[in-house]
Simulated scan of single mutants.
Amino acid sequence: MPSAFTANPHFYLLLGALLLAALVARRIPLLRTLVSLAIWLVVGVLLFALVTERERFDPWMARIAAALNIESQQVAGEETRVRMSPDGHFYVSAHLGPAGGGITRRLLVDSGATITALSPPTAAAAGVVVKPAMFPVLIKTANGTIQAQTGDVSQLRFGNVVARDLAVVVSPAFGDIDVIGMNFLSRLKSWRVEGDVLILTPHHPQDAANGA
């Protein structure tokens, strides 16, 4: 997980050039005004990018994103719409565990994952009881084959979508990444991607989840 937002190096070169231009333009009123406007525009773009990037991991930033109406997911009619993240992936802010308990996490939506996968801290906070397996569960990932344990999350909910008693796999090898897989998506009435928006339609739409 990134611990801080990092801008592209070219951004810093542009900002440095604008600051240099501001020093040169101090004696030319019109040029000084244009450079000042350009600097404020660049700062605004950086702040916007900071909020949209960090809101996936930081609840405080998520509240700012919601206040600015740039949060990544919204309920529209019977659908939950999830905007693509700047990194090209779709993330949802979901509540895992029983009502009145559990935890809210950002999860990567991955149609290439067969089953929903949780890190051990997320699974523990969501009240997932890991089941002893007669045979080890082996999962193929981009980093090779890993061994995982299995369990069930009592409820996974976001937007107007809810899945109960959802099977999950748990492994330290997942790091801090939590993933929604096809065993969740297959429970929906439909799901599709239109442009940069993931559209999820449940069979029985629920009231919009608070804070998710």
Results as ranks from 00 to 15, higher is better:
V162S: 14
N210H: 08
V161Y: 00
E55D: 11
V168Q: 04
R105E: 15
R81F: 06
A208V: 14
A38H: 08
R164V: 07
D165E: 13
A142Y: 03
G211Y: 00
D196N: 14
G101W: 00
G195M: 05
T6E: 12
V75K: 05
R83K: 07
Y12L: 10
A123F: 04
R105L: 14
V193I: 15
L20F: 11
A7E: 08
T141R: 04
V179G: 15
L19E: 03
L188F: 06
I70A: 05
L13S: 09
V179C: 08
L19R: 13
L41V: 13
A208T: 15
R27E: 07
M61V: 10
E53N: 15
I180M: 10
E71V: 12
L41Y: 09
R157M: 10
I146Y: 07
S154I: 00
V193G: 12
A125R: 05
R105C: 06
V45M: 13
R27S: 13
S36R: 08
K189T: 04
L15S: 13
Y12H: 06
L156P: 03
E53I: 08
T116A: 08
R83I: 01
D58H: 02
S186H: 01
R63H: 07
L166G: 03
M61C: 13
V24Q: 07
L108Q: 07
A38K: 10
L198V: 03
L50Q: 09
N8E: 12
T33S: 14
P202F: 00
E79V: 11
I146W: 07
A7Y: 13
M182W: 00
A113S: 12
P202I: 00
F11S: 05
F135V: 10
K131L: 09
F184S: 13
L13R: 09
E79T: 15
L37V: 07
L185K: 08
G97C: 08
N143V: 02
T116Q: 01
G211W: 00
G151R: 03
A25P: 15
A99D: 14
R105I: 14
Q149V: 03
L20R: 04
N183Q: 09
V170C: 10
R63K: 12
A7P: 05
I146S: 06
N8S: 13
G16M: 04
A21F: 03
L96G: 06
T33P: 03
L18P: 13
D178N: 15
R164N: 13
G44N: 11
T114F: 03
N143D: 12
F11V: 14
F90A: 04
P2S: 12
V24S: 05
A124R: 09
P132W: 00
I146C: 10
S154A: 14
G102F: 07
A4H: 04
G77P: 05
G97E: 07
L96Y: 04
R26K: 14
S171T: 13
V161N: 10
I180F: 11
A167L: 08
V197D: 03
G88I: 01
P172N: 10
V169D: 02
L156T: 03
E53G: 06
D87H: 12
I199F: 06
G88V: 02
T141E: 01
